[in-house]
Design a binder for these strands. Sequence first.
DNA 1: CTTATTTATCGTATATTTGCGATAAAGGAT
DNA 2: ATCCTTTATCGCAAATATACGATAAATAAG
Lengths: 112, 112
Amino acid sequence: MAVNKKDQFEAEEVELADLAKAISHPARIAILKTLAQKNMCICGEIVEVLPLAQSSVSQHLRELLAAGLIQGTIDGSKSCYCINWKAFEKVEKIFNLFFSKTKSYEEKRTCC
Amino acid sequence: MAVNKKDQFEAEEVELADLAKAISHPARIAILKTLAQKNMCICGEIVEVLPLAQSSVSQHLRELLAAGLIQGTIDGSKSCYCINWKAFEKVEKIFNLFFSKTKSYEEKRTCC
DNA sequence: CTTATTTATCGTATATTTGCGATAAAGGAT
DNA sequence: ATCCTTTATCGCAAATATACGATAAATAAG
């Protein structure tokens, strides 16, 4: 059992759910925060600010990459990451739209 | 292995991560949408609009309850759910704050 | 060249999530 | 009272996520 029923939902819902999942772990939020606060790409250093093993951090970085929230380049023996601001702002818009769309029905409620 | 390291992160990060997790499934987004679009509490009916078994829907409802995003009352043999708008708007603020805080560093960047 | 550093990936263990059927509990209908 | 409807919960199976150590691959340093 436990079949994946993703394809039974609307694409919009799946998209938002996937984005929410990308930021649903404190480590990934901490990574985004760290990348934003520095004023340049971070090559290494990320592992040091997180309470996780190097391989675990790498895994979280890969997930943020897959979600498009960050971008990475290889510079010598180091990998450099920074926030993909274009994608980040698109994600922000998607969340904003969800909240505002949902809230637009609030005034009509006749209960609670 | 796979120990829970939640307590090693900042409370703010854990809070946002937990909220993101609450909306990280298309079924839960669909539930929120459905509850918002109706102009009253929904007693039953939610199961019919979702491609999931009744027990699965009940589980998702419980998770949304736990996150505080919805509230439920028992009316006879039916359970009635509606969005907790106060909490919903608080969640919106938390996400907005995350996005705006992160973006505030964007102009300073010297890379990419 | 050899050695160290850095990071991605693999393999593995455990935890959590997802989903369903079966059942329980509670109220409504007859 | 019995039967039906509705919803929560239990128990289980499968899928996914989390975390780590070990290792590989690539460059840098000596």
